[in-house]
Amino acid sequence: MNGSIKTKEKHYKFSDEAFEAKFAQKTLSAVHFTHEAHLRLAWIHLQKYGLQKAQEHLTEQIKAYAENLGIYDKYNETVTIAAIRMVEHFRLRKPTGSFLELLAEFPQMKTDFKTLLESHYSFDVFKNKEARARFIEPDLLPFD
């Protein structure tokens, strides 16, 4: 590990299993669902289900979670799948025993996520309406 990640993120009060279950059941408070929490969910799902199922589960669950909170316009299919694929890329590059270890090894997933996305896309996926509605493959650098 390249150092220790210190976090005050509230979602760590839950075990991976409890966190995954609370999110799937839409009982997780919005204060617990941060960018880092999104990455952690991706890591949990990738560990348990593999890439394809992780993408299917998380796109469905995050859409349902956003709808449950009444924030329909917050969901972005391209960002969701890109985050999952980035976690998978780094997870395969350096397998770790926990998400925090992975984040310590590759902190840019949390601290510089937008720059990582910009290395794959020539346009702003956060502002693109089509990218919000459906996954758009990278036009600069593939995730694989």
Rank of each mutant, 00 (worst) to 15 (best):
K6Y: 15
L39I: 08
A104D: 04
G70V: 01
A42Q: 03
V79R: 12
L103N: 13
T115C: 11
T59E: 03
K74T: 13
T80D: 01
V87Q: 01
K74G: 04
H11D: 06
L39P: 01
F90W: 10
E17T: 12
R91H: 09
G3H: 03
R40K: 11
E130L: 15
H45E: 09
F135I: 07
A37P: 04
S4V: 15
V79K: 10
Y72V: 10
F14C: 06
A82K: 01
P95M: 06
R132V: 05
P95R: 02
F99K: 02
F106K: 05
A83E: 08
F23Y: 08
V87L: 07
S29A: 13
T34A: 01
L51M: 11
K13L: 14
K127P: 01
F143G: 03
L141A: 07
N68M: 09
G50Q: 03
K127I: 09
R91P: 01
N2S: 11
S122G: 06
K13E: 14
K63T: 13
R134C: 08
E137K: 15
H120R: 03
R93I: 13
Q55A: 08
M86P: 01
P142G: 05
M109V: 10
K26H: 12
A64H: 06
D144R: 14
I84M: 03
F135C: 07
H11A: 02
A133K: 10
E36H: 03
A18Y: 01
H45Y: 10
F19M: 06
F99P: 00
P95K: 02
D73H: 13
A131R: 07
Y49E: 12
S98A: 08
S98F: 00
A64Q: 10
F23C: 02
L46E: 08
K22C: 11
L103V: 14
L46K: 02
T111H: 15
K63W: 05
T115A: 14
A24P: 13
I62H: 01
A42F: 04
A18H: 07
R132N: 02
F90P: 00
F19Q: 05
T115Q: 09
H35A: 06
E20L: 12
Q108F: 08
E56Y: 11
A83I: 04
K8Q: 14
